[in-house]
């Protein structure tokens, strides 16, 4: 019962991802990809990583999707159309071949591996434990990741804002 529901959600997630990667309308792609991210958050919730599921929701559905949508609107070719030109069929074919080849290799390895499986019920980790580990053993990593985020966001702003003067000049002409 529970597994059937999970498999359904996982299949839906995969389908959303696959369709998102093959659509021509970029906005629809991103919205379907958000469905895919939601599916992944559901998986985390099922696996007992509650904090992670909500973080996924906050970061991907709330933030990354917004950045992507803004980027699409800022880089479209015509005012109302966001459909991209069709890509070459041979490239798509080769990409599919590569994708299935990698999938085959991974699946073969996975199905034949002897994986140690614990039969314990869903492990639970409280936010308090997570916080203690994050601020304890992993505090250095936490600081580094904060630094990376700050630098990356500042860099993003600088990159996106540079070259703005040229456009203003162009418009003035």
């Amino acid at each position: 019962m529970m597994t059937a529901a999970l498999i359904g959600i996982l299949l839906l997630t995969l389908a959303a991802g696959a369709v998102a990667m093959s659509l021509r309308n970029l906005i629809h792609s991103v919205l379907l990809l958000i469905v895919c991210w939601l599916g992944i958050a559901t998986f985390y919730l099922w696996a007992g990583a509650e904090f992670l599921a909500f973080s996924q929701l906050l970061v991907y559905v709330g933030a990354v999707s917004m950045v992507v949508l803004f980027a699409i609107l800022l880089t479209r070719r015509s005012r109302i159309d966001v459909a991209v030109a069709p890509d070459s069929a041979s490239r798509a074919l080769w990409a599919l071949v590569a994708g299935f080849a990698v999938l085959g290799v991974l699946a073969y390895g996975m199905l034949n591996a002897k994986l140690p499986v614990s039969t314990s019920p869903v492990p639970s980790v409280s936010v308090r434990d997570l916080g203690a580990q994050l601020a304890g053993t992993h505090s250095a990593a936490l600081l580094v990741i904060g630094l990376i985020l700050t630098v990356a966001l500042l860099g993003g702003v600088v990159i996106a804002a540079s070259g703005r003067a040229d456009i203003m000049e162009e418009k003035g002409k």
């Binding site: 958000i34 904090f51 909500f54």
Partner: peptide, 24 residues
């Protein structure tokens, strides 16, 4: 929930998406 405040604001983040969808 154990992280219900996070849940509250994560769900609230969907608002922006809906507004974008409406405008688009």
């Amino acid at each position: 929930l154990d992280s219900s405040v996070l849940y509250f604001f994560a769900v609230g983040a969907t608002t922006e998406l809906a507004i974008f969808m409406a405008g688009w």
